[in-house]
Design a protein around this nucleic acid. Structure first.
Length: 406
DNA sequence: ATGTGC
């Protein structure tokens, strides 16, 4: 199988086993981005795929400059997992689909007081983007009801107190129009150049970036609460982790018990006085925030994994993991590749027998399971690299994309 | 990705 962490060049690594398809264009983007001024290390995750200029499924360490364009427009995009009290035996997909109609619309006035109080608690000002709070958005965003399928580590799983008889809810969304406007305003003034950490522009961007993280977290919370209310269920947040962000890293921040040497090798090019740097995650899940969920396509499993920090690999991989299966096909290719095989109605069911709610015809093809890599190859790559230990996997019951038709 | 671009 070869080394699961391939060294592509001096400061570029790729986590992928032989089974994991990685597109050449994504590698080119990874290597080109690694050449940017102040960037000392780039790592492609097994879900690496091409983006608009910069690859998705990658992490970048810089010394003293940050690159807002590298984080992209969906600042704070992430994954939240909720355990619910909705019993598997109570699942009625037709009823659920009815209950979930119109959740694309802005939240009703009844939510206003709660939203206002949550904004205040998070220190966020009101903006015109608030009407998007509680909505999923487009692209690869979704909300998915899932059931436990397989448990690999009973002790760790049981500690999370997730019942095998109940559904869980996974929400993938971000900061909607807010993050988009932050990046657009930034690019209009500065283009794609990096911002020195001592500059005023840096502080201005980071303040807005941090607000977008909080906004995205609140958005996912409101999406989950809205769905649970519609389904007459209750839920509790288990995990919420962002995978599009830039954050400061200190060498001393993580204790690597056995392999301090390797960590120092990776981070040796940072400022020698304080050992600080910036980790840009573009579709890369942090590995230093505890247990995380890494979903496959709507027709594949989602894996709950425990990141392993006591390995050579975690520093080499910039304390980052894949954020999903990663696209295999370009969006624009999906319809032509699949329309002979499947009608739209075929795509509203998956191999698991789960339901897909997506009234947008282009999107239901673009997000077809065939358009994504196999999640097991992504997980196996990270396992072989000693980055994660799988705890459990879940299978989809109902995937909500959008009611918006066209 | 985006109250979606000419």
């Amino acid at each position: 199988m070869g080394n699961p962490i391939q060294k592509l060049s001096d400061n570029v690594s790729l986590v992928a086993n032989a089974d994991t398809w990685i597109e050449g264009k994504a590698i080119q983007q990874l290597e080109k981005t690694a050449q940017l001024d102040s960037i000392v290390k780039a790592v492609g995750m097994p879900d690496l795929h091409p983006g608009r200029g910069y690859p998705i499924g990658a992490a970048f360490l810089s010394r003293s400059k940050i690159y807002p364009a590298l984080v992209g427009n969906d600042i704070g995009c992430g994954m939240s997992l909720w355990k619910t009290d909705i019993k598997l035996r109570k699942v009625n997909l037709d009823k659920f689909e009815k209950h979930l109609s119109t959740i694309d619309a802005p939240l009703h006035e009844d939510w206003k007081e709660y939203i206002d109080s949550r904004l205040v608690e998070k220190g966020l000002m009101k903006t015109n983007f608030d009407q998007a709070l509680g909505t999923i958005g487009g692209g690869n965003h979704f909300a998915e009801l899932q059931q436990v399928s397989d448990i690999y580590d009973e002790a760790v799983f049981n500690a999370l107190d997730i019942s095998k008889n109940n559904l869980v809810l996974l929400v993938h969304s971000g900061s909607r129009g807010l993050g988009e406007s932050i990046l657009r305003n930034h690019v209009e003034e500065f283009g794609h150049q990096g911002l020195d950490e001592k500059s005023e522009a840096f502080s201005h961007y980071m303040k807005r970036h941090d607000d977008a993280l909080k906004f995205a977290e609140l958005n996912r919370e409101l999406i989950a609460k809205r769905i649970l209310k519609r389904l007459r269920g209750n839920g509790e947040l288990v995990i919420d982790v962002n995978h599009n962000l830039v954050s400061q890293f200190r060498v001393s921040q993580i204790q690597v018990s056995q392999n301090q040497v390797s960590q120092n090798q990776v981070f040796e090019s940072l400022d020698s006085e304080n050992g600080k740097g910036w980790i840009h995650r573009k579709g890369a899940t942090p590995s230093d925030c505890g247990i995380v969920m890494i979903p496959g396509s709507r027709g594949d499993y989602s894996y709950l994994v425990k990141p392993e920090l006591n390995s050579n690999s975690s520093a080499e991989c910039l304390y980052s993991l894949a954020h999903g299966a990663g696209r295999k096909w370009r969006r624009s290719d999906c319809k032509s590749r699949l329309s002979k095989r499947y009608k739209k109605s075929d795509l509203e069911r998956t191999g698991f027998g789960s339901r897909v709610i997506c009234k947008n015809k282009a999107l239901i093809y673009e997000e077809a399971p065939e358009a994504y890599k196999s999640i097991s190859s992504v997980i196996e790559s990270m396992k072989a690299a000693n980055l994660v230990t799988p705890i459990a996997r879940f299978k989809p019951v109902l995937t909500y994309k959008t009611q918006g038709g066209c």
